[in-house]
Amino acid sequence: MRAVPRWALLSSGCAPVVLIGGWSIAAALEGPAYDPVAQTISVLGAYGAAGFWVMTGAFLALGVCHLLTAWGLRPAAFAGRVALGAGGVAAFVVAMLPAPSSGGSLPHGSVAVVGFALLALWPVLAADRDGGAAPWGLRPVPAVAATTLMSVGAGWFLIEMHREGAAGVAERLVTCMQSLWPLVVVASCLWHPDDDAPPE
């Protein structure tokens, strides 16, 4: 089992901080006109929004966090690392293709869907098929559970978007899960006994 460098704990731990901090600050700048229950995070990063630069910066920082974590997560299966890194790239593209203030955008929405899918699938793609010898976060059962929960959350988000309901709540739940799972996996790898060289 190859060691995970300790800096991966920082990159994975920063992901939920920059995401939640970004949307919290951007929402505060937007004021009471923004409804976090019904409106999505993309509204905060739309052209003309008061918190446009804050939310854009948060998306970019999130992308960096996912890319660094994917690079450092050596015990994970290669396909999972690629999916996590690609999810980071999707965060960059979402930041570069903000939705217009007038409403949705097909390019922005398409990239967001791809990002959601990659970050939902990476846990199961990263899992060690041998099972018991792997760190807890890379075992099949927790990985499948994480992917299932994220997929159910994404389905709930789509339903809420269609019915114009609590889309903001659903999106925040899914993105929180997706930003926290890399930290769980990295922590489980660092706490797992390793016979190879010590982490960098």
Rank of each mutant, 00 (worst) to 15 (best):
P5Y: 07
A8T: 15
S12I: 00
V17H: 00
V18P: 05
G22P: 05
S24F: 02
S24K: 03
Y34T: 00
T40L: 12
T40K: 06
V43T: 13
G45F: 10
G45E: 06
Y47W: 13
G48K: 08
A49C: 09
F52R: 15
G57H: 07
G57F: 03
L67P: 11
L68W: 00
T69F: 00
A70G: 13
W71A: 12
L73G: 03
A76N: 07
A79D: 03
G80N: 09
R81H: 09
G85H: 10
A90E: 10
V93D: 01
V94Y: 08
P100S: 09
V113H: 10
L119K: 08
A126R: 07
D128L: 06
D130Q: 13
A133P: 01
A133S: 13
A134R: 07
W136Y: 10
G137L: 07
L138I: 07
V144L: 15
A145D: 03
L149V: 14
I159Q: 09
M161I: 12
R163L: 04
A167K: 04
V169E: 01
V169R: 02
R172T: 02
L173E: 01
L173K: 00
C176Q: 02
Q178G: 13
L180N: 06
V185Q: 05
S188D: 08
C189E: 02
C189S: 12
D195L: 12
D196G: 14
D196L: 11
A197G: 05
